[in-house]
Design a protein around this nucleic acid. Structure first.
Length: 410
DNA sequence: ATAGGGTTAG
């Protein structure tokens, strides 16, 4: 379907630009590539860049860096590294952005050692010293690995190296500590940050509010909320979504609806995430007709229903023994051009096993693999559970499955 | 004109 911002529009704009005479500068094309990359249409960026090359517009350090970033996000670090060859062929020097992009790529591939290796080389180098983004990227990588201690150590290390941490580095660590429910530590880092004269922003506060909400400390959430507003920092869509979601997970859907009313009054329109959280809230309470009402409301408001929202409703029906409703939605989403992922399939497979529909579950698993979707740890756990409970596995198979799962988890 | 931080499902 053609929607504003789809990669088809980008292709169109790009082709029209390539027809112009004289040709726009590489800077203009870079601006379009940046926009497409922001929409996460990484393979489109690669295609557009190839067309650029065919039209005789040479790459710049900027476009090459963008291409490396796109290959990283497409899990094609090999191609990303091969772009380095272009630098040397064209006589360009990779800059700090190039190295930062490569570090991020390695981290996305779980190649932490390679990422740290680049940092060390940069520290030794006289020409391309690491900057705040270099450290910020690595801090995020350590947090993603659950290594908050390492992230805090790196924060100290960057200061020793004469690189001042900024609001992004601090917010990354604060958010990770909050996710780890070590909100006390997050608050300490928060104070440390402010004592250094770094002002928190809406992202910092949203992470802290999320952290205290998860602990059920609504009083503290309200305090932080008031504190940020008193500083002239206003809660935005994400802040409200976090509040709506945590209220729903606590079973307080009524309060969540109040929050939706509040955000609307402040001129912030709920989006697909807001509604999906509400739907999940109703599903958790087994109030499926209310969940479906929210879903229909979304549909009536335009086409903001995505694969995620379908998956949430499908999960709700599966958990409340309406597997046929779930299958109907599954067919509907596929027909609507939305692509179910491993989570959606796993949910349905789990639902089918729990109803004793072993054959259907296995058929769906085959279909999932035929679609090129890789089962993950959770999928295998669901398969093993389903097969065991339906006594479809003997002890040898259970043993094999367990060994397999432990390898996947490692 | 390029690089790093906060939201939803099994």
């Amino acid at each position: 379907m053609l929607t504003p911002g789809s990669h088809w529009d980008a292709l169109h704009v790009f082709d029209e630009m390539l027809q112009l005479r004289p040709l726009p500068s590489v800077v203009r094309f870079t601006q379009v590539l940046t926009q497409v990359a922001k929409l996460k249409h990484y393979s489109t960026v690669i295609v557009l860049n190839d067309r650029l090359g065919l039209s005789g517009i040479g790459p710049s350090v900027y476009t090459l860096n963008i291409i490396i970033n796109c290959f990283s996000h497409l899990n094609q670090m090999g191609f990303g590294l091969s772009v380095l060859g272009k630098f040397f062929k064209l006589g360009f020097e990779p800059d700090v952005t190039t190295f930062n992009t490569l570090i991020n790529g390695f981290l996305l591939q779980n190649r932490e050692a390679d990422a740290v290796g680049i940092l060390n080389k940069m520290m030794e180098s006289g020409t391309c010293k690491p900057n705040v983004v270099t450290f910020g990227t690595l801090v995020k990588g350590l947090c993603m690995k659950g290594n908050n201690t390492g992230a805090i150590q790196l924060l100290k290390k960057m200061e020793e190296a004469g690189c001042k941490p900024d609001i992004v580095v601090y917010s990354t660590i604060i958010d990770s500590l909050c996710k780890d429910t070590t909100v006390v530590d997050a608050m300490n880092i928060f104070s440390e940050m402010m004592s250094k004269g770094i002002d928190p922003n809406v992202i910092t506060y949203t992470s802290l509010i999320h952290g205290v909400c998860k602990l059920g400390d609504w009083k503290e959430a309200a305090r932080l909320f008031n504190e940020m507003v008193s500083k002239g920092i206003f809660p935005n869509l994400l802040t409200f979504n976090v509040l709506v979601d945590t209220l729903c997970k606590e079973g307080l859907v009524g309060k969540a609806k109040g929050m939706v009313k509040m955000m609307t009054e402040r001129g912030i329109e709920p989006d697909v995430v807001t509604y999906s959280s509400l739907m999940d809230g109703y599903c958790l309470r087994g109030e499926m007709s209310e969940a479906k009402e929210v879903f229909d409301l979304m549909l009536s408001q335009g086409s903001i229903v995505d694969a995620y929202s379908y998956s949430i409703l499908i999960n709700g029906y599966c958990k409340h023994r309406s597997i046929d409703e779930a299958m109907l939605l599954f067919k509907e989403m596929s027909g609507g051009g939305l692509v179910p992922d491993a989570v959606t399939y796993s949910t349905l497979i789990d639902g089918l096993y729990k109803q004793g529909r072993i054959r259907d579950a296995q058929k769906l698993f085959s279909k999932m693999q035929a679609c090129g979707l890789l089962p993950d740890v959770q999928t295998y756990a669901i398969l093993m559970d389903g097969l065991c409970k339906n006594q479809q596995l003997n002890w040898i198979q259970i043993l094999w499955f367990t060994v397999f799962l432990s390898k996947v988890c490692a």
